[in-house]
Structure formats: C-alpha cells, structure tokens
Design a protein around this nucleic acid. Structure first.
Lengths: 232, 232
DNA sequence: TAAAAGTAATGATAATTGTCATATAAATTG
DNA sequence: CAATTTATATGACAATTATCATTACTTTTA
C-alpha cells in the first residue's frame, strides 16, 4: 500500500513527464519511489554548492533555482536557470566529480533526491533512459556554447534585451504581465555578466525608452519587437 | 587479409588510445575499420561547418582544429580546440541536430569518419563505450561553463594570460620554446573574446614587460609565474 | 512602528576595450 | 623578384563598462 502510494506519486510527477525519467517503466518508477527522499528548500538556500560531492540526482518538483559560480572577483556568475520538471546534478554524478556550480533556490522549492547507484543502474539497463540523459546533457552543452558566444560578442545592452526575452519565454509572466521569475538586480547582472549598476542603468534606459516598465521589483516587457531587434 | 590490415590500423590508432573508443573490443574495432573513411584536411579548410548535418563522428588522427561560431558582428568566436586522439561531432550526432559550431583545421589534418549508425549501435550494446562518451561530453560541458565564467568575469588581460598558459599546457612547445600551436592574432583574439587590435596591444605589453617574447609569429612564454599571477 | 539592513537608482569619474586610420612587416602571387 | 595582398603593429580617439559615492526606497527586525 505504501509502495503503491509512492509509485503513484512518481508516476504523476512533473519530472517524470519532462525529464529523461520519462523512459522509465512502472517497475523502475517503483524502485525510485522506494529509494528517493524529498526535501523542501527555501528561497535563497542552496540545494548543493560548488565543490560538494553530490551522490545522486535531484528532481525539481516545484520552484526555480540558479546554477552559478563564484568568480575570483567575488561576483556570482549565473550559468543556467533550472525549473520544475528538470534534473539537477547529472553532470557531476556522471563525471564522478564534485559539483562545479552551486544550485541556489530562487523561490521555495520541492526536490526529490535519487541516489547515484539507482540512476547508474538505469543507465546500464535502459537504453532509452541513457539516450535521453545524453540528449539532455548535449542540449546543455549547446546552450552553454551559445551563451558563451553571446557573452563574448554582444554588448551588455544586447545581452540584457536577450535575457529579458529569455526569462519571459522560459518562465512566463504573471497575470499583470510582469516576468514571473523574481531576480534581484544583482542576479540579473550575474546572468548577463556585468556590474549591478550597469544592469540597473540599462534597465532605467529601457524603461525611459518604453521598452519595459518597472514597478518596484516587477519588470514588464512592453515592446517585444524592439527588444528583439536590440537582442539581434 | 584486408580486414586484418584495417583492424590493425584502428587498433594502433591514437584515437583508439585516447577517446571513448578505448572501450571497443577487437570485433567492434574491426567493424569500424570496415565502415570508416579517411580524409586529409588542409590548414584553413573546414571539416564541417555550422549548420551542416554531420551524420557521424570524426576521429582526429593528426593535427589540430578549432571549433568556432560566427557571431552577428562578423567575429569568429573560438569555443574549443581539438587535437589528435579526440572525437568530433559527437554532440550534434546525439542531439540529432545540425552542427552548432564550425570545425576548421589549424594545421594539416588526418581524420576518419565513422557513420552514425555504427556509433549508435555501440552506444546501445557497449555500456562502457556509452559511459565514456557521456563522460567526455560532461567534461566538455564543465570546460565550457568554466570558460563562460572566465570570459564573463575576467579582464582581457587576465584572459590572454590564461589562454597563453592553456595553449602551452595543452599543445606544448617547439624546441625553441615557442608555442607549438600556430594561431593568428585574429584567432587568438577570437579565443579570448576581444578585438584583434586589443589582443595585439596586450601581447606587445606582455612583451615589453618581459612576460613573453615575440619573434615573428612565434610566441615564447618567458615568465610563467607572473603570467599565472595575472591569470589568477 | 521605528531603526537597521538591504536593495535599487543615479551621478561623477576612471578604467577598459573597441574602432578607425595608418604604418610596417611578412607572405603570396604573377 | 617586384607587386600585391595579407597580417601585425601602433596611434588617436570614442564608446562602453566598471567603480565609488550618495541618495532613495523596501524589507526586515527589534
């Protein structure tokens, strides 16, 4: 009865729908349900940090987190954002290395932890699963390469426009039209790779030009066409 | 007899020694030897270009190439360098997408092409091979993330020092002590993500400070300690 | 609710980096 | 080998971006 309960939970889980785990059959899901542990993470808290040994994979059931790295000058570069339905920690598990990036909650989160042994077992016995995992990581690699080229070749203004569009496209907007994802100015600066003040200044410029609207912490994209033109 | 000949060639191949292919057994190597095609690429020529459909994987038998992407402003960002012993085109093969980056020879190269069907077959039947491939791609992902943070957070001067050290550590030096890999100033600028003139200027500065020595196209690293300190 | 702490906004200024022009050196070609 | 092209180097200047200082606004905490 307890097993059925857990199994049903994993079966209906958003992570199962969206991630590599969709290749798992009922038996395999049952095994996960039996070994997984759930955790709640509060906004601002880490799931794991750079250098931690992560002996498994985290499934994001709800919430959003940032994957970032502290650089020598003390600034936090956000490499990637992760939302519900995705897995976390796959790379360091496969490479058998400590985490290269910190994962910190941007809102309250629910995550499930699946131990490494379980995942590696599926990797060996379920080709569709390993192929899915592989494709996910390849997708990450492409995204990161493109991000690298963008940071390297675009101006801060272009990157800000690009990032605002990215945030709306990937995390949606609230009923009032503002970006759903809540980033501080410092975090937004960390995403585009610039100083906080430069980021704030450009947001003000965009605001004055009517491209966006700022009300408190909320950002509303007003002129997508022009933003897209700036972003290239 | 012909098969034995080819098999022996693949068995002794540097790519077999160094890449994911080391997991293949004699039978599997024989199959590769039978289906592979070899090619010579001259310096400056592409193996494939951004957008090309690459229906397999290239083994680099000799030579070095750059993986780069043309950005909107016409500059070529070098994302990665690849040398003998490595595989090329794995990501786009697995993602089933056109190449995201161009691969262009920096010196004359010898490459072997292995069709996709063959590789995917090994992927399904040889767990060690798929694990190796996975680890390679995970390694690439880590490297690219770190490169991203470096480009985003370090100054051009820091990145130049870092890149010069990287080039010496990974591609060695000639008998006269100069960097073995031959990059034009434009390419070096494309690696560190800056304008060609800025790159040239900083090389001159490093030269005047005695950190490096420039003689023609050759670059000799003279003061590794100081270069490392600059690179952080 | 008032004080404190943190976050956002803006000005002033400095440092970094890019662009354009031009000179010099090296490589290629007829 | 001279002529042409290409790559490297440098100067002058402009644009972008960072840093530091200050103020205004929000949120948290006592």
């Amino acid at each position: 009865m307890i097993n059925l309960f857990f199994m049903s939970k994993c079966e209906q889980c958003i992570v199962r729908e969206l991630s590599s785990l969709k290749a798992l059959n009922k038996d395999e899901l049952l095994r996960i349900a039996e070994c997984k542990t759930s955790r709640t993470i509060k906004k601002g808290e880490p799931i794991f940090e750079e250098g931690d040994v992560v002996n498994g994979v985290y499934c994001i059931t709800s919430g959003i987190c940032k994957m970032s790295k502290l650089s020598a000058n003390g600034k936090d570069q956000i490499v990637k954002l992760i939302k519900a339905g995705e897995l976390l920690g796959q790379r360091s598990m496969i490479s058998d290395e400590p985490a290269n990036l910190s994962a910190i909650a941007l809102e309250d989160m629910e995550v499930c932890f699946i131990p490494k042994a379980e995942i590696l077992n599926f990797f060996d016995t379920n080709n569709q699963f390993s192929m899915n995992l592989m494709k996910t990581i390849c997708g990450d690699l492409k995204e990161t390469s493109d991000h690298l080229v963008s940071i390297s070749q675009k101006t801060v203004k272009e990157r800000l426009a690009e990032t605002l569009i990215y945030l709306q496209d990937n995390f949606g907007k609230n009923p009032d039209g503002s970006l759903h994802i809540q980033l501080s100015r410092e975090e937004l600066a960390g995403m585009i790779g610039t100083a906080t003040e430069s980021c704030i200044r450009l947001l003000s410029d965009f605001n004055k030009l009517g491209l966006i609207e700022l009300s408190g912490k909320k950002i509303i994209l007003k002129d997508m066409a022009k933003l897209k033109r700036i972003a290239d």
